[in-house]
């Protein structure tokens, strides 16, 4: 089975994000970048399918010269080859989907795996956009995947339950938590992956259709306050509702 896994490079979820001086981008100074956590699920699923059925797993990212680190992580986890498409610094979802589609046309995969969303901009558009561009079925937010004789059965988390969807290969799956537990690369594999080549390609002719005009940090969450049922605390609660929150 020929599997293409699309990954993105996102700020570490533990990083404190600062908006750049231009007001519409993230200041990358001192920010640690990682493989998007949902994409790790996609890589892991690709590796497990290969371990079961044989085949080749290729990881691709649309990025810049800096993006080699996430591809090296994918190699260390065990993917067979990696592709870096060098493009816009801050692309929109359409641009990424167009470029992923271009790679998919070259690689001709049986299955395309992605994370359900990137945790940086959370657009959730790429799996569906990719399906549309390639004319392939696309199943989003999948927490269980079975592939037998070219038939795909996917379980999706939906509000209050689970939906079971079927499709045939080739198709696109976006990974949700619970799909698997991603492996962490082993030291010998990390060392071996250093010498593996990164296939670098220029971006296809596509342009972002949207542009970011501003970014804001959410208002600082107010710290919670725990009060007990003592008389003093009840008086304090009344005072807070009256004076601070001004609701009574």
């Amino acid at each position: 089975m020929n599997i293409l896994v699309c990954i993105s490079r996102v700020p570490d979820t533990a990083t404190k994000v600062v908006i750049g001086s231009d007001g519409n981008s993230i200041d990358s100074q001192g920010v640690k970048f990682i493989v998007n956590p949902y994409d790790e699920l996609a890589i892991e699923e690709g590796l497990r399918l290969r371990e079961k059925n044989g085949g080749v797993v290729t990881a691709v990212t649309i990025g810049t010269d800096k993006s080699t680190d996430v591809l090296r992580t994918a190699l260390a986890m065990g993917v067979d080859k990696v592709i870096l498409v060098k493009g816009e610094e801050n692309p929109d979802s359409f641009y990424v989907a167009e470029n992923l589609a271009a790679v998919a046309k070259d690689e001709n995969p049986d299955l395309i795996l992605l994370g359900r969303q990137s945790v940086d901009f959370d657009s959730l558009q790429i799996p569906s956009a990719l399906g549309e561009i390639l004319g392939m079925p696309s199943i989003s937010v999948v927490s269980k995947l079975t592939i037998e004789d070219g038939k795909v059965t996917a379980e999706r988390d939906i509000e209050g339950g689970c939906e079971i969807v079927e499709a045939s290969l080739p198709c696109i799956i976006s990974a949700q938590k619970g799909l698997n537990e991603p492996r962490y690369p082993k030291l010998p594999d990390i060392m071996k992956s250093r010498s593996k080549p990164i296939d670098q390609r220029d971006a296809a002719a596509a342009a972002s259709r949207t542009s970011i005009i501003g970014m804001e940090i959410p208002l600082k969450q107010r710290a919670g306050k725990i009060l007990t049922d003592s008389d003093d605390d009840i008086n304090e609660l009344v005072r807070m509702l009256h004076e601070d929150a001004k609701v009574i």
Partner: peptide
């Protein structure tokens, strides 16, 4: 990493750190 010491490590060294 108050002094951006991570900039001094190679990609594979940082991948090792994250994996451990």
């Amino acid at each position: 990493d108050y002094y951006n010491i991570d900039d001094l490590f190679s990609e594979d060294e940082l991948i090792v750190r994250r994996s451990v």
